[in-house]
Amino acid sequence: MWTRRRRPRALEETPAAEVTGNAGSGGPEVRIRAFRIGFVGALGVLLALLLGAIVGQLGTVILYVALALFLALGLDPVVSWLQRHDVPRWLAILLVFVVVIGVFVGLIATIVPIVVEQTTIIVQDWDTIVENVRNSDLVAWLNSLTGSGHAIQEGIDAAGAWLADPANLGILGGGILAVGAGIAGGFTGATIVLILTLYFLASLDSMKRYAARFVPASSRGGYRAVSEEITGSVGRYVIGQVSLGAINGVLSLIYLSIIGAPAPILLAFIAFLFSLVPLVGTITGAIVISLVCLAASPATALAAAIYYLIYMQLEAYVLSPRIMTRAVAVPGALVVIAAVAGGTLGGVLGALVAIPVAASLIIIIEKVVFPRQDAV
């Protein structure tokens, strides 16, 4: 009796959505479902785009969190020092925050009246200031370059014509509103950062323990040692940079008061703030202060410029090596590369955090990567 032979599976009709082939002679059958793979891949791309959009929308919040964590790591060495002197952690955190907020409130309370006073003087004596500027040597030099003899008056007329255009007034009004909104947003952001810093500083130890739970138990000892070294280097860097800024601010206050610079307290505060930015901060602050000193006299501006040229050499070759070498052990060339890259990617805040990030990478390479390579 004849029986019907079953056709081999490989010869049976394959569904249109599947492509069938053999892995090799006599090997297992391989099926590639093109529609399923394409659909899952498209879902993955859409999910990646969605996550990117969410990160973009939360960019400001992420920046606040990163800055608060950075400040918390910077204040933690001070809190730890107080703890070693038998001060409870909660009291140490409270003392540190009271001192930090008190210093900034004191500076603002000192600087704001100066700014208001100088603005009032400028408004009241505007005609005299304009007349003095017209008769100054600088204007005479500009007139000699232009050849017309009325460079300032031509500039004033051009500015008046620009302001007379209603479209330009709209642009100017929008810019002023944008500046006002930026200032209001800055105060709001500063408040949020301070609150987050307080929370992070209070729960820093528990955050470290929780992060260690993600590491296998056999590697937690090494992870804790590396993480403690990284957080310590970040804290030392913040303290070192603030120390450099404080030295620049105090010395600027003394010298600018001696040479009769306008509003020396305000200019010293500007010197302190700019010194917090590595590499380019000090020279940028020096240029700004020297230009402001022109309001007093060219001789005052020249004296300020000469002082800052000398101070920058002192900072680069004496102060910074002594302070920052103890804070973070980063080669000089890597400091420059890290600061430039951080500034390009994240602006001023990127430049601030670039050097401790570079120091953290060096610690990871020396403590984790190199030992594993040497053990092979």
Rank of each mutant, 00 (worst) to 15 (best):
L43K: 11
Y223S: 09
G342K: 04
A159T: 14
T188N: 10
G346Q: 00
L51N: 07
V238T: 01
S320P: 09
E229P: 08
R7W: 06
A17W: 14
L58N: 11
I265Q: 08
E228C: 10
R84F: 01
I101G: 13
A261S: 13
P216F: 10
L51P: 04
W141R: 15
I171E: 15
L73W: 08
P77K: 10
I239D: 04
Y223K: 04
V353Y: 04
G106S: 14
G41M: 11
A305Y: 09
D205V: 06
V87F: 03
A217E: 14
G26A: 13
A299H: 14
E13I: 10
A17H: 14
Q118G: 11
A303W: 00
A305I: 12
S257K: 07
V103Q: 14
A159K: 09
I32W: 12
A34G: 08
V55A: 11
L273K: 09
A211G: 01
A304V: 09
L73N: 06
Q118F: 10
I258N: 05
I195Y: 00
K208V: 04
Q57A: 13
R36D: 15
L253D: 07
L194S: 00
G21W: 06
V376L: 13
L177N: 11
I364R: 01
G342E: 02
G59D: 12
